[in-house]
Amino acid sequence: MSRYLLDKFLYFVDRDPELVERYREDPRGTVDWWEAECANKVLNCHAGEASTWLRFTEEEREALAAHDHVALFALGAHPFLTLTLFIAMFERDHGPLEYQKAFGARLAHFALPYPDIAT
């Protein structure tokens, strides 16, 4: 499991409006494409450096493809990264703060200590 890779995906996609829409409309295709093309690129690197070993686990891939923020939280994805991306994708389908409240309510069953979100 790589919390780093989950957070990198959430951060990367959230910063590009076209990728936000792509992820909203085709989550599995976007996850597969991103893992193949972007996962091993070094963030903010202009020299084309890349690693070769980063891969999602099947559980991570499924949670991302299902837009399952509860499973992502349980896997250690940072809740602020998940929330900002999911607001960009789904807030338009709800009334004011309705999506954010539902997002929090679905996480209400978690008790302290929360899953570790350190990377």
Score class of each variant (00 low, 15 high):
G48S: 08
F80D: 14
A74H: 06
Y23R: 02
R3N: 09
L83A: 13
C38D: 04
R106E: 00
P27D: 03
D16T: 03
M89A: 10
Y114W: 11
A118H: 11
H46F: 06
K41T: 11
E18N: 13
E98N: 03
I117P: 01
M1H: 08
L6H: 03
H94K: 04
L85F: 06
E37M: 11
P113W: 12
A63R: 10
V13Q: 05
A71K: 13
F86R: 10
G76L: 09
A47V: 09
P96E: 11
Y114M: 13
A118Y: 12
H109R: 15
H46P: 00
L6E: 11
R28S: 07
E98P: 02
R55V: 02
I117H: 10
V31S: 07
R61C: 01
W33T: 09
G29L: 11
E98L: 04
W53T: 11
E37V: 08
N44Y: 08
F90R: 07
D32W: 14
T57F: 03
H94F: 15
E58Y: 04
T30I: 05
T119N: 10
E58M: 07
E60H: 06
A66M: 08
D116M: 06
A111E: 15
P27L: 04
L72Q: 09
G29C: 08
V42S: 08
R61N: 10
Y23V: 03
E98Y: 01
T84S: 12
L64P: 08
A102S: 06
H67V: 08
F12K: 02
F73Q: 05
V13H: 03
Y11R: 04
T52W: 08
F56S: 01
V42D: 07
R106M: 03
L83W: 00
E18M: 10
R92H: 14
L75G: 07
I117Y: 04
D32Y: 13
T57V: 06
A63I: 05
L75Q: 09
L75W: 08
Y99Q: 03
T119M: 05
Q100H: 00
L72T: 09
R55Y: 03
C38P: 00
F12G: 02
R92E: 15
E98A: 14
L6A: 01
A108K: 15
S2R: 01
